[in-house]
Amino acid sequence: MTSALKKIIYNCKQATFLIEKKNSGKITVAEALQLQIHLAGCAVCRTYQQQSLLINRLFTGFQTKDLKLDEDFKAGLKRRIEKEINKN
C-alpha cells in the first residue's frame, strides 16, 4: 500500500479536509479516491459529510423575506438624508 493511501485510511482530519475541498469542487482525482476509500471504512466521517452538506444548505437557504428595518431607524435615516441634501 502506498503511504499516501495508508495515511488517508486512518486519518479523519485529512478526510474531513478533503470533504470540504470536494464540496467546493476543488478535489483532485487522487484525493477523491483517497476520500472514497476512507469513507468506505469510516462511519463517523460519513456522518460528518452529511452534516457538512446540511450546513451548506442551511446557510445558503437562509430566509430574509420577513426581515425589516425598524421604523425609528428608517425615520432617522430619512432625516439624515434630508439634512445632507439641504447642506448643498
Binding site: 437562509f62 423575506k65 426581515l67 425589516k68 428595518l69 428608517k74 435615516l77 430619512k78 438624508i81 445632507e84
Partner: peptide
Amino acid sequence: DPVSWVEKYADDLYRFAISRLRDEEVAK
C-alpha cells in the same frame, strides 16, 4: 430622488446586507 430612497429601498438593501453579514447592527 434621495428623499424617497429610504421608503423605496431601505428594507431590500437591509435584507441583502443581513444575508451577507448575519449581523443586524453591521447591516444597519
